[in-house]
Design a protein around this nucleic acid. Structure first.
Lengths: 257, 257
DNA sequence: TGAATAGTGTCTTTAAGACAGTATATC
DNA sequence: GATATACTGTCTTAAAGACACTATTCA
């Protein structure tokens, strides 16, 4: 059995910062649904967002990117920090004990090991186009799965709060960062982008006004191709004019729906 | 000599979290100038924002409040977390050594002491009405002083960046949180609130449009008193209608200048 | 009466929002 | 031709922004 990051975590304690971790809410968009990548550690029945520890040699952004890479295989994903979580009770959880970890991993640690300490967690969200991702297993082979944001399973610790806060940040950032660009494939239809914005903002947006705004500002450009999706009129494909999109975000005069 | 928090810091290491700290950018507004409270440690010539470590028994918000209290004497100040700072080089600084600390404080520590580690710092900003504050000295009697945000002195580590990011957050939050309410005294004049918004947003706001908006929404209420300020027409005093202010912020339809 | 600051009204331009019918593809 | 989805145009209302003069106080 070869060395895994899990071995490193227990054997090279000095490699990591103490009392700080990164939790990374990885969002993907597919079939007009916004999803979040979760993993299930130790068969506890509860799920976690994709988290990990910070190496002494890396910045918190690098740590968040590395952690996302370990699960998605994608480098240089778009990510934003949104807030930190820290209070003494936040990592207490029934079943998260040295005994349990020993059973699951064979590693001999005790309950005073630093991973049971009170951790301040730096929350990031990551945006990625769903179809690019090939999910990789966790440190100890935990399963990972995309969950629609309206069907989040039972979460460990305060991880449900972390997801909710990430969503709140996403909503706030939609007028500031190129969130559409990061979550959609290169070519997309108007109904797809329309549904994405409605999902993130959790409200209905008039389709006529929405489309007019995007096209009038030159943010999206119509292509000659259409997408065949069965027994109805085929929607045209569009792509972003990234320069105009970024300019519109910068001017702040746009995409405030 | 009685026990100080400084003694606790070195003698009760276990009381604090490792590799995490809080840096608190404390803003005050006075004489139409936005100021920030800084302290100068160890006579290094450089200044720092008001920072400190997190106790194992407190949340990061409680830590930020405690740290602000230790310097201002004010409890329950309004504060917001804005982002975390963390990269391996951030706390390296010429002169910040065990030897220097020993000279300044008499404490015997070595250069492998944890306070020289790479720290992730959680950035908060705090808003307080300038006139309420009686500045208290730092752990080792360092001087503290209000500095106008346009005349920031040389700062240690990445603390200039921290101030700039706090300002950026303040600017973003002005349409979302009751920043005017927290920074102004109970009674204020239109020119004062006008100058505050201009300072924070770093742009000129048409005085007629600005005033009309505040009054039309009922956010500020004219009082019968005027403020005597020398050889000119005396400006009326106003106060906030906090309920209407909060409602306007919530609706998001206001104070986006 | 001059200097300095406080205070106020109108008009134009632009964006937001409400609203419903036509077009196209497939079965 | 029935059905399901794609697509588009006009009108109303509200907010933002540009603009300049009068009022008060005191030296």
């Amino acid at each position: 059995m070869s060395k895994s990051p899990a071995d490193s975590l227990f054997e090279n304690e000095k490699e990591y910062l103490r009392n700080v971790s990164v939790d990374n809410v990885i969002f993907g968009y597919h079939d007009k649904e916004l999803k979040v990548l979760l993993q299930q550690p130790f068969s506890t029945g509860k799920w976690t967002v994709i988290g990990g520890y910070i190496k002494r040699t890396e910045s918190i952004d690098q740590a968040a990117k590395r952690i996302a890479f370990e699960r998605t295989g994608l480098k240089n994903l778009y990510l934003e920090q949104f807030r930190a979580f820290g209070n003494p009770g936040r990592v207490r959880e029934r079943g998260f004990t040295a005994k349990k970890i020993n059973e699951m991993t064979g590693k001999k640690i005790t309950n005073d090991h630093w991973i049971f300490d009170y951790f301040v967690s730096i929350g990031f969200y990551t945006l990625t186009e769903f179809s690019k991702v090939t999910i990789k297993k966790g440190l100890w082979g935990e399963t990972c799965k995309w969950w629609p944001i309206n069907e989040i399973p039972p979460m460990i610790f305060d991880h449900l709060l972390i997801i909710k806060e990430a969503l709140k940040a996403l909503r706030l950032h939609i007028a500031e960062y190129p969130i559409g660009y990061e979550l959609l494939p290169e070519k997309f239809t108007i109904p797809e982008i329309h549904a994405l914005y409605q999902t993130i903002l959790e409200k209905n947006l008039d389709d006529r006004n929405f489309t007019r705004k995007l096209i009038a500002k030159g943010i999206v450009v119509k292509l000659k191709e259409t997408k065949k999706i069965g027994a109805h009129r085929s929607p045209y494909l569009y792509k972003f004019d990234l320069e105009k999109y970024m300019q519109a975000l910068k001017d702040g005069d746009i995409l405030v729906f």
